[in-house]
Design a protein around this nucleic acid. Structure first.
Lengths: 172, 172
DNA sequence: CTTATAATGTCAATAAAACTGACATAAACT
DNA sequence: AGTTTATGTCAGTTTTATTGACATTATAAG
């Protein structure tokens, strides 16, 4: 076990086994199917209302960082302002999101969830967290650490900075 | 370190730290951003052609399991046959996919990639594998094992059976 | 102070990818 | 002979995105 030499090559190739095309393909397919599971529960809830996945994403990140500006949200979601506007318009009209004029820069609009908005956010994220919690619990802490490490590496460097600033500050 | 007693409670709560709402929320956001990175490269390639992500998925799974029937593909992709038909029609008309009458059951159509289809499949999956490989390499084998464990748990049980049969058989 | 730039919002047209519902055909099963 | 299954297609609709053009208001720069 501890002896080096003749086994070192085999050990190294064993260690590198996770980089074979076949292993990578399996990883790709796992991402595809897991993402479906990941979005399934909120999608089900949203389907019963007049909302879709786009509304969920907006609500999530507004709830995540209260007072977010429209531009910041656009950066996070990676969509055009016209696309976001349709969704945001609905949420504001329906009284789930509030749109306050910026204090420092009055061109900006700071976005907040109303009570109704917070309520829907909780409902959606509870469903998603529940599945995530079940997956985490079955996989165990070490697996979760690995899961997070790989996902962090998979994030495109262009949006990594945005994510960094977002993921880091835990809301009170 | 080894002494039990007063520390056992702290240790357990430390072990369970990965199940806090905050940790789960971070996991949710990581999935969201990582999936974007995961699809970014093929999307970029497809954007230059007349194809989209739907074509990529069809091509991937046809290449993955040559001779797949239409019904099997529908089950994997989780879309309606009308939705798949639009995509498949294009791919067949453009000579990327071939549609052979089933040998045992002549109602079925077995799907195959043509040379042109294989060529595009390779181009797309090379791009995706490259990013996956980079992420895997930076994260290391232990992290990758954990990554896979968590994703497997996240897959909805309804489609888990389909995935099982698909992920298991490595093509020659 | 005037002009340029930035942040937001909106109108219009379009595209991709899904959906439902209805219907047709051919083959297999009973 | 009648029913079910696998596939394909027509028509209409929905969700989510796109591009392009333009208006409003506010800050920044000269």
């Amino acid at each position: 076990m501890h002896a080096p030499g003749i086994n070192s090559k085999a050990t190294r190739s064993e260690q590198l086994l996770f980089l074979t095309d076949d292993q990578l393909r399996q990883g790709i397919e796992l991402m595809f199917f897991a993402y479906r599971g990941f979005t399934a529960d909120p999608d089900m809830i949203l389907q019963t209302m007049e909302y879709g996945r786009a509304h969920h994403r907006a609500i999530h990140f507004i709830g995540r960082k209260r007072g977010l500006t429209v531009n910041e949200l656009l950066g996070i979601l990676g969509v055009t302002k016209q696309s976001l506007n349709r969704v945001l318009r609905q949420l504001i009209d329906d009284g789930l999101v509030e749109n306050r004029v910026g204090l420092r820069d009055r061109r900006q609009r700071n976005l907040f969830l109303t009570e109704a908005g917070e309520s829907l956010e909780r409902k959606l994220s509870d469903a998603q967290r529940q599945r995530m919690r079940a997956a985490y619990a079955k996989a165990g802490p070490e697996a979760v650490a690995g899961f997070r490490t790989v996902l962090e590496q998979m994030i495109a460097p262009d949006i990594a900075r945005i994510v960094q600033s977002l993921l880091m500050d835990a809301e009170p």
